[in-house]
């Protein structure tokens, strides 16, 4: 069987998240859904367009959720899919968030923008296994209130963990409910979270600069780089380590990542055009 051959999947439901972002709930056209781990991704393709790497944003018993933002041709076609439509699926690929390493410790989840999607399976896991972790804090930053993802999950999350949110820009219309979170850069939330830096695992996902700024402040607060995990994004074509596109120096991001510990990648992220 060719590693390049997609499996036909069907859209079971479409959940609109924001103006440009939807969650596709998908299942195989036949057979069982593959086992995916939090942090892993699949290559999704609408008919006639290219494949794009999309992290799994919820792992249900027989359904996979993938949250997709319309940023280009392939994602435009994917976000336009309707219930009952077909799509191609290859995966799962890549490394997972190190949940086992966080058991018994404080867990710090930092999400920026769409970066909350690859981390939602972590939060789902925490919801189902809350007793396995000490303090759990979620720090979530987005551009503006309308970009906040998964609002329907927030109440449940708040019942079992601390959730702090901030937006970079807030313009409130007179008839709108006021934003209850903060305004300002996500790193401002870090000093507000309670964690034992010596006994914390941090998982960070978002735009690369957001991850760098966050990791820098986490490190300054005493968390070792090896306990800070980030999820990198590069141009992936094959997802199986055979096409060469997603190289970042000594890493093939699709094979060695996308989740990597910060100590391994920090020196690479500041080299220009690497």
């Amino acid at each position: 069987m060719s590693v390049y051959l997609p499996r036909p999947f069907v859209v079971d439901a479409v959940e609109r998240e924001t103006a440009d972002t939807v969650t596709l709930v998908i299942r195989p056209q036949s057979g069982l859904a593959p086992a995916m781990k939090a942090g892993q991704f699949a290559m999704l393709s609408a008919f006639g367009t290219g494949e794009v790497p999309i992290s799994v944003s919820r792992i249900a018993r027989d359904r996979l959720h993938h949250t997709i933002r319309h940023v280009g041709e392939a994602t435009r076609a994917l976000t336009a899919l309707k219930t009952g439509d077909s799509l191609g699926f290859r995966g799962p690929f890549g490394t997972a968030w190190p949940l086992a390493a966080a058991v018994g410790k404080d867990l710090l989840v930092l999400a920026g923008g769409l970066g909350l999607a690859p981390l939602r399976p972590v939060l789902d896991y925490v919801m189902n296994h809350r007793d396995r972790f000490a303090r759990v804090s979620v720090l979530y930053g987005t551009r503006e209130v309308s970009q906040v993802l998964f609002g329907r999950d927030h109440k449940a999350w708040r019942s079992l963990m601390s959730l702090r949110m901030t937006v970079d820009h807030d313009v409130r219309q007179p008839d709108c409910a006021p934003w209850s979170g903060q305004v300002g850069v996500i790193t401002k939330l870090i000093p507000k979270a309670t964690y034992d830096a010596q006994n914390t695992v941090a998982m960070v996902c978002g735009p690369e600069i957001m991850m760098r700024f966050s990791a820098r402040d986490l490190e300054a607060s005493g968390i070792e780089r090896a306990n800070i995990h980030v999820s990198l994004e590069r141009n992936m074509k094959c997802a199986v380590g055979l096409c060469g596109h997603c190289q970042l120096s000594n890493f093939l991001v699709c094979r060695d990542g996308a989740v990597l510990s910060y100590d391994r990648v920090a020196p690479l992220l500041t080299v220009r055009e690497l």
Partner: peptide
């Protein structure tokens, strides 16, 4: 408590920053 630093304009109320 929490304070918002705000500025109003015809486009609405801009919150520049929040302080805790």
């Amino acid at each position: 408590g929490r304070v918002g630093l705000e500025l109003c304009s015809p486009r609405g109320v801009h919150t520049i920053d929040t302080l805790d």
